[in-house]
Amino acid sequence: MTKQEWPLYEVFIRSRSGLSHRHAGSVHAADDQMALNNARDTYTRRTEGVSIWVVRSSQIVASDPAETAAFFEPAEDKIYRHPTFYDIPDEVENL
């Protein structure tokens, strides 16, 4: 059954210049060009999406939520990444 289906693509839209692409959902399409068209027709009907990315769902590599602790927590220990932990004198601007 699934062999007949058109592959699934994930759709990312940048709705205004200056913003990042955000995940909007998915579409099925037979090829990349169709995926772009379908994404435009489905997810930018009301507004002009400035830029559309489509990616085959099978190409996306994701972190495993079950490993959240090992994957993410260490950063909370390494506090030197956070800018608020540095004391900059008030006279210094733009920092």
Binding site: M1, L8, V27
Partner: peptide, 16 residues
């Protein structure tokens, strides 16, 4: 389309 898309995240295919 949005809803089929949401359902597919749960492991069921559009075809099914």
């Amino acid at each position: 389309l949005y809803l089929y898309s949401a359902a597919e995240t749960l492991g069921v295919s559009r075809d099914q």
